[in-house]
C-alpha cells in the first residue's frame, strides 16, 4: 500500500441527481493525506450529498471515487474500514450512556474487550467527557453531544474522517473547542474532509478550500489564494494634511480619494511587490504617510464574487480572533 504517496481522497466527475434535481454536477477534487480539506457552500450546494457518497451512504450516478486507496464502487467495505463519519446530526444512541456508546463502537470494530475499555476511557478523557461518561446523551449540551459523536467516530482509528458541518448550531465557545479537537486530529496524521457554510471556519481550519455552489466547484485553493482571486483588495493610506493627500494622489494616478478623512484607496492584489511599488512612488514624491493598512478581501467577498450571491449569515462573528 502506497497510501502515503497517493491522495487520501480523489474524486472525478462525480454526479448525482434526485429525480429532476441535479445535486452534484461533475465534481472533481483531490485531498492530500494528513490535510484538512474544506467544502464550503451554502445550504443546498451539495455538501452533504458529497459526504454521503464518499462515506458509502449513497451511490453516485456517475464518477469515480477513491478513498484511502480503495475504489468506492468496487470495495465499499474497505473504504468503510478506513473512514469515520461525524454527520450533521449527532449520531449517538440516546438511551445508552456516553461510555456505553463508545463501547458499542469498540465492539463493532471488533476490539478486544480490555482494549475497547482502554480506548473508551482514553477518548472520554481526551474530549473532557469523563465526568458525564455514565450519563445518557439526552442530558448533554449540544457541544458535548458533538464531542461524543466525534469520539465515537475515532474509536476505530480512521485514517480519513468526514465532518459534515461539525459546528452548526453550536455556541461560539463550543465551536472553539470543536476547532481545537479538529486541529488536534490532523496533528495525528488524519485526513479530514470538512463541510461548512461558515467562511470563518474554513479559513481557520482548512489547508485547502473548495467552494461548492449548485453542485459545481466554482473555485479551489488555499484561503489566501481564494482571497486573491477576487477584486476588492486595497491599500488604505492616510495623510497628515490635504497637501500630502494631493501629492500622493497625483503620484499614484488618482486613486479613490476621501477628502474628509484624508485617505486614499489604492487597488492591489495584496502581493509584496505591489505594496513595494506603491511605497516607492510615495517615497519618490517625498510624501509623508500617516498610516497604512492592507485590506484583503475576506472569504465573504470571495463567495459573493464567485457565486453572485452571499452565503448564510455568519453567526460566529463574535468568535473571530
Amino acid at each position: 500500500m502506497r497510501t502515503s504517496t497517493q491522495p487520501a481522497i480523489s474524486v472525478t466527475g462525480l454526479r448525482k441527481s434526485f429525480g429532476d434535481t441535479v445535486v452534484l454536477d461533475g465534481v472533481d477534487m483531490t485531498v492530500e493525506p494528513g490535510t484538512i480539506f474544506s467544502l464550503l457552500g451554502p445550504n443546498g450546494a451539495g455538501k452533504t450529498t458529497t459526504v454521503n457518497i464518499l462515506s458509502t451512504l449513497l451511490t453516485p450516478d456517475a464518477g469515480s471515487v477513491r478513498v484511502a486507496g480503495h475504489d468506492l464502487g468496487r470495495d465499499a467495505d474497505a473504504v468503510r474500514r478506513a473512514i469515520g463519519v461525524t454527520g450533521q446530526f449527532s449520531a449517538v444512541d440516546n438511551l445508552l450512556t456516553g461510555r456505553e456508546n463508545l463501547l458499542l463502537m469498540a465492539d463493532l470494530h471488533h476490539l478486544r474487550r480490555d482494549e475497547g475499555r482502554r480506548r473508551a476511557d482514553e477518548l472520554l478523557e481526551r474530549f473532557d467527557l469523563t465526568a458525564v461518561a455514565g450519563k445518557t446523551p439526552a442530558t448533554y449540551s449540544g457541544g458535548m453531544r458533538r464531542k461524543l459523536d466525534l469520539a465515537m467516530t475515532l474509536v476505530g482509528d480512521p485514517s480519513v474522517i468526514f465532518l459534515d458541518e461539525p459546528t452548526t448550531g453550536l455556541d461560539p465557545r463550543s465551536r472553539r473547542t470543536m476547532w481545537d479537537s479538529i486541529r488536534d486530529l490532523t496533528a495525528r496524521g488524519v485526513t479530514l474532509l470538512l463541510t461548512t457554510q461558515y467562511l470563518e471556519e474554513a479559513d481557520q481550519l482548512a489547508d485547502r478550500i473548495a467552494v461548492l455552489d449548485h453542485g459545481k466547484l466554482v473555485a479551489e485553493g488555499t484561503a489566501e489564494e481564494l482571497k486573491r482571486l477576487v477584486p476588492g483588495g486595497h491599500l488604505r493610506l492616510s495623510f497628515p494634511d490635504a497637501r500630502g493627500l494631493a501629492l500622493a494622489a497625483a503620484a499614484l494616478g488618482e486613486p479613490v480619494r476621501e477628502e474628509e478623512s484624508l485617505t486614499l484607496q489604492v487597488p492591489t492584489d495584496g502581493s509584496v511587490g505591489a505594496l513595494r511599488a506603491v511605497l516607492d512612488r510615495l517615497d519618490h514624491a517625498a510624501v509623508d504617510v500617516a498610516e497604512l493598512t492592507v485590506h484583503t478581501p475576506d472569504l465573504d467577498d470571495v463567495f459573493l464574487s464567485l457565486t453572485g450571491h452571499a452565503t448564510a449569515p455568519e453567526p460566529a462573528k463574535e468568535a473571530a480572533s
Binding site: T56, L57, G87, N94
Partner: peptide, 17 residues
C-alpha cells in the same frame, strides 16, 4: 424509526460491519 431519525443507523451504515 428512532435509529433512523437519530442518525445512528446512518453511522452503522458507514461502518465495516
Amino acid at each position: 424509526a428512532m435509529d433512523a431519525t437519530e442518525g445512528i443507523m446512518a453511522r452503522f451504515r458507514t461502518m465495516a460491519i
